[in-house]
């Protein structure tokens, strides 16, 4: 059991029904001792922000499988900035290598692809949270 109980929001933004991956990630994080607040499908930036405030989330994970990441990723970071919420955003799913840089530049903390192992998923989330806490 980890001494620090991380609370992570997992959601899919907009019209994207591929939720197999996000369910696997939810389970990986749960089994690593984190509390996952599972929002599931068809969320909006507004509903994610509201959940992040009410749940006092330590990180937000967005699952993207519809090639919308370059539109929705920056939109989400912009919404977080507007709300003055300093919470790391991690994007997982199908993101071509050449798009990763652009996402990171827009303020996304990390990008996880289909090949990521359970350990990688957990350490990426942990690192993103501790990087934010150090600033």
């Amino acid at each position: 059991m980890s001494d620090q109980q991380y609370r992570v929001i997992l959601a899919k933004l907009g019209l994207d029904g591929h939720d197999r991956g996000i369910k696997v990630v939810a389970r990986i994080l749960r089994d690593a001792g984190m509390e996952v607040i599972y929002l599931g499908l068809r969320q909006t930036t507004g509903s994610i922000i509201a959940a992040a405030e009410e749940e006092d989330a330590d990180a937000i994970g967005l699952s993207m499988h519809n090639a919308g990441h370059l539109t929705l990723g920056p939109k989400m970071t912009a919404s977080l900035n507007d709300a003055r919420l300093d919470i790391p955003l991690i994007i997982g799913g199908i993101v071509p290598d050449e798009d990763i840089e652009e996402l990171l530049e827009s303020g996304v903390a990390a990008v996880l692809g289909p090949g990521a192992s359970a350990e990688e998923v957990v350490s990426t989330v942990r690192d993103a949270i501790s990087a934010r806490d150090e600033t």
């Binding site: 059991m1 980890s2 109980q5 939810a26 389970r27 994080l29 749960r30 089994d31 690593a32 001792g33 984190m34 509390e35 996952v36 607040i37 599972y38 929002l39 599931g40 959940a51």
Partner: peptide, 10 residues
């Protein structure tokens, strides 16, 4: 593990 999936909001 102490982890949890909190799925009520959904």
């Amino acid at each position: 593990t102490g982890g949890a999936i909190l799925g009520d909001r959904i």
